[in-house]
Amino acid sequence: MKEIVFLLEEPSARAMIEGIVPRIEAEPPPVRYIVFEGKQDLERQLIRKLRAYRNPDAVFIVMRDQDFADCRDVKENLKRKCADAGRPGAVVRVACRALESWYLADLAAVEAAFGTRGLAQRQNDRKFRTPDGLGNPDRELKRLVPEYQKIGGSKLIAPHLDLDNERSRSFYHLVKTIKDSLSTNNEYYLPVEIEL
């Protein structure tokens, strides 16, 4: 039976994805979230979690923040682990640089979530035009919305995120991956790799 399995580095990623899955597909197949205790824990346990997963029809989506590592290194390393675990079809998505980059790319959603007036207008400020390049998105977001916290904030923002937003490429690719895995009925479907 088809199942979507997200392997995530922390609970805030789960909160975000839980907020967008029902908006992509009202009646999705079973979705499981395996939430690790940070990226080291994800890196360490990924192979075992994939290798001994019992459902042969499960579709895996691995996601972690890029933070200050090289995006391609992070991705290739995770891909290699998926292949080592016998799950070469698992899709790896890297948030450039962190979840907060995606929120900064959609200030209208942040404004709607927190009721902070005038935020959406600032989307055209130079630094929020392409927020994937911002070095410290967490700090930038807190500067705009001091009450933002990772899990609670993600729960609030996710329902407002514009799923067609292309301002952050990595968010766009994640949404596309989720759409592809949810929409296909073929149980043996392996999502097509998309270049970041």
């Binding site: 499981r32 395996i34 939430v35 690790f36 205790e37 346990q45 075992r48 979690k49 001994a52």
Partner: peptide, 13 residues
């Protein structure tokens, strides 16, 4: 059977 631990599995949901 693959050598995992219950506390980890619990935390991982």
């Amino acid at each position: 059977e693959d050598g995992d631990k219950l506390g980890h599995l619990w935390r991982q949901g």
